[in-house]
C-alpha cells in the first residue's frame, strides 16, 4: 500500500480513536463505573470527577513518559554498555569520549555555538525589533527577516552554500572578494576555527526573526510614561534604549536567550549538510549522529552529555514555572 494512502487511513484511524477514546472513556466512567443514579448518586458524581482529569491527560502523559522520560533513563543505561550492548563497561564509553580528540573539538565547538548563536541572535533580534518599530514599512521588513523561520535547516544550509561556495561564479562572498580586491577564491568552510562562525551565522540567520518577534512585542509592552519621563529629562535615543527599555524587557531577553541556547544543542542539520563535521566543525549533535546505527553505546553517551549540558536550563525553567503557579 502506498504510504500516502496509509497516511490518510492513519489520520482517520488516529483521529477517530483519539476522539473515540476521550468520548467513550468519559461515557464509561459516567455510566458504568460511577453511574449518577441509585443510592450513591452524589458520591459517584464526585468520584467520577476525581478520575476524569486523568482520562484527559492520560494519552499525553503516556507518550511523554514513553518518548521523553523513559529515554533519559534508557539512554543512560544503554551508555553503560559496549557497542553490541552485551557487555557492561561502566563509564567506559564516557572515558573513551574524553580521550577522543574529536569529542573535545565537538564539545568546544558546541560551547562556542552556545555562546555566540544566542548572543548574536538576541542582539540582531533586538536591533531589528527596535528599528523596524519606527518605520512605516516596518511590518514588511519584519516579515522578511522572520521568513527564514519557515525554512528547514537543510534548506537554509543549501541557501548559504550559494553564498559560501568557492567558485566565484556561484559563491557571493568569493565573487565580492574577487570583484573588490581581485583576490583568489577561498573556501570559507575550511578556514580553521573561523569556519565555525560561518556555520553559526546560518542558525543566527534562521532564528533572528524569532527573537525579533518576541522582543518587539515586549518593547511595545513597555509603559509609555517611563519613556516620556526619560525624554523630558533629556535622555537621547540611545540612552532611552539601553537604560530605559532594555532593563524593562530583561526577563523576555532571558527567555529568548535560553530558548535559543537549548535549540543550539539540538541542531545537527547545518553541520551535517555543510561540512559533515569535517574541517574541525563538529558539534555534539552531529558527533552523536556519526555513531548512530554504528555504536549505540557511544551515541547514547554523547546524547547524555548533551542532556547534562541542558540540565541547568531545565531546572531553572521548572523552578520558574513552579514559582509562577503559586
Amino acid at each position: 500500500m502506498h504510504p500516502f494512502l496509509s497516511g490518510i487511513i492513519t489520520i482517520i484511524v488516529g483521529v477517530g480513536s483519539c476522539v473515540g477514546y476521550f468520548y467513550f472513556s468519559n461515557l464509561i466512567l459516567d455510566k458504568v463505573i460511577f453511574p449518577a443514579r441509585g443510592p450513591n448518586t452524589g458520591r459517584n458524581i464526585n468520584r467520577a470527577n476525581q478520575w476524569r482529569p486523568w482520562l484527559f491527560v492520560f494519552p499525553a502523559v503516556f507518550v511523554l513518559g514513553l518518548y521523553l522520560v523513559y529515554p533519559v533513563i534508557g539512554s543512560f543505561i544503554r551508555s553503560l554498555y559496549n557497542r553490541s550492548g552485551q557487555e557492561f563497561i561502566g563509564l567506559g564509553n564516557y572515558a573513551t569520549l574524553l580521550g577522543a580528540a574529536e569529542f573535545r573539538t565537538a564539545f568546544l565547538n558546541n560551547v562556542l555555538w552556545a555562546i555566540f548563536v544566542p548572543a548574536l541572535t538576541t542582539f540582531f533580534g533586538l536591533v531589528a525589533a527596535q528599528l523596524t518599530d519606527k518605520l512605516s514599512w516596518g511590518n514588511i521588513a519584519k516579515s522578511l527577516i522572520f521568513m527564514p523561520m519557515a525554512i528547514s535547516f537543510v534548506g537554509a544550509s543549501l541557501i548559504w552554500k550559494f553564498v559560501y561556495a568557492v567558485d566565484a561564479d556561484i559563491g557571493l562572498i568569493n565573487a565580492i572578494r574577487a570583484g573588490l580586491f581581485g583576490s583568489e577564491p577561498v573556501d570559507v568552510l575550511q578556514i580553521p576555527f573561523w569556519n565555525n562562525f560561518f556555520l553559526m551565522f546560518i542558525l543566527v540567520w534562521i532564528q533572528t526573526g524569532f527573537a525579533m518577534v518576541i522582543l518587539s512585542a515586549a518593547l511595545r509592552g513597555i509603559p509609555e510614561e517611563t519613556i516620556e519621563a526619560a525624554v523630558i529629562d533629556g535622555a537621547n535615543p540611545f540612552q532611552i534604549f539601553f537604560k530605559i527599555k532594555v532593563p524593562q524587557i530583561m526577563p523576555t531577553i532571558v527567555v529568548v536567550w535560553t530558548t535559543i541556547t537549548v535549540l543550539v544543542l539540538k541542531v545537527f542539520d547545518i553541520v551535517y549538510a555543510m561540512t559533515g563535521g569535517n574541517f574541525g566543525t563538529d558539534i555534539l549533535p552531529s558527533y552523536m549522529m556519526s555513531f548512530m546505527f554504528r555504536d549505540d553505546g557511544r551515541a547514547t553517551a554523547v546524547a547524555f552529555v548533551i542532556m547534562i549540558v541542558v540540565l541547568p536550563v531545565m531546572i531553572s525553567n521548572i523552578v520558574q514555572a513552579r514559582k509562577e503557579m503559586r
Binding site: 539512554s75 547514547t300 541542558v310 503557579m325
Partner: peptide, 22 residues
C-alpha cells in the same frame, strides 16, 4: 502542578536522548 512543571521541564529535553532507546 507537578504535571505542569514536568511539561515545562520536558520542553528542553534534547530529543537525541530518545533516538537510540526508542
Amino acid at each position: 502542578g507537578w504535571l505542569i512543571a514536568a511539561v515545562v521541564g520536558l520542553l528542553v529535553v534534547p530529543l537525541q536522548l530518545a533516538l537510540v532507546p526508542m
